[in-house]
């Protein structure tokens, strides 16, 4: 199976899984750079071209030419660059979702006659979901996937950025907004919205599947269990990530996604 994997630093979990397992059935071309941004790689028909000098240098190291015809692959895999749990939490910085479990007290407060405006304005769940969906549609993966579909029928898979590690609360950094989501009992609702947003955003693109993060790799409803973030590597694979990195998943989650790719691609 000849695949092209396009994305940001989260591509490394697939690289690590492949390094560990070395499956004979996959021949992968890596087209990746940390924080890969719009304009750094552009599609000309089905040809993906690196426009950013740093990306070109990184592709050289990965043995990838700066031009790749995506139509020549059995499948194209986009990793990351959609909407992350961090974005989902950030949307709640000043607002509270009125349809979520924690909203009962807030609603009761608002129903009190002549109460003051709520400290944090209410945000409806449809508005929250729409914001996440539109964030995904505004990001690189969606833009490249839609442009690619216009040029080629090659099967496409999307792997969203993994939830952050459940070691999030262990270190010195406090991540107060994540803590608040957990404390208020809203983590499951947030994760469900993030999943729905991905499903909605990509629903109109034929021959594309957007994977959900496997349920058994998730801890506390919206974090990645430590077993799946262990041994996470950088794209270079030679450098390790800082000990307190909570963003990246390791080969165990990468292997799960390789299984998902094997299962999904023949059906697309």
């Amino acid at each position: 199976m000849k695949l092209c994997v396009i994305g940001n630093s989260h591509v490394a979990m697939l690289m690590a899984a492949l390094r560990d397992a070395a499956p004979a059935d996959m021949d992968i071309t890596w087209f990746a750079k940390p924080g890969l941004a719009e304009g750094e790689a552009v599609l000309d028909g089905s040809r993906l071209c690196a426009r950013d000098p740093d990306l070109v240098t990184r592709l050289e190291r990965l043995g990838t030419p700066e031009y790749v015809d995506l139509a020549a692959f059995d499948g194209v895999v986009f990793v990351g660059s959609t909407a992350s749990a961090f974005a989902a939490v950030r949307l709640l910085q000043g607002h509270r979702v009125s349809g979520w479990p924690s909203a009962r007290k807030m609603i009761s407060g608002a129903l009190t006659p002549f109460a003051a405006p709520l400290k944090h304005p209410m945000l409806s769940e449809p508005a929250y979901l729409a914001a996440l969906t539109d964030l995904i549609r505004g990001n690189l993966t969606y833009k490249l996937a839609t442009a690619l579909r216009a040029a080629s029928a090659v099967p496409i898979c999307v792997i969203p950025q993994p939830f952050p590690s459940d070691r999030l609360f262990d270190g010195d950094k406090k991540y107060p907004m994540f803590r608040r989501v957990v404390r208020r009992g809203d983590a499951a609702a947030l994760a469900a919205c993030l999943r729905s947003a991905h499903a909605r955003a990509f629903a109109g693109i034929p021959g594309l599947v957007a994977f959900d993060q496997p349920a058994d790799t998730i801890a506390q409803d919206f974090l990645t269990a430590a077993a799946y973030t262990r041994d996470a590597v950088r794209l270079s694979q030679t450098d390790t990530l800082p000990r307190d990195d909570v963003l990246h998943a390791g080969p165990a989650l990468g292997a799960r996604y390789l299984d998902s790719l094997r299962a999904a691609l023949p059906t697309l």
């Binding site: 009125s98 349809g99 909203a103 807030m106 609603i107 608002a110 129903l111 109460a115 003051a116 405006p117 709520l118 304005p121 209410m122 409806s124 769940e125 449809p126």
Partner: peptide, 19 residues
């Protein structure tokens, strides 16, 4: 897309009026 319950709607409306 509307809201999930009448209470939620009433709360949204009242908070809106206060704003």
């Amino acid at each position: 897309e509307g809201l999930g319950s009448e209470d939620e709607l009433r709360a949204h409306r009242l908070d809106h009026l206060r704003r």
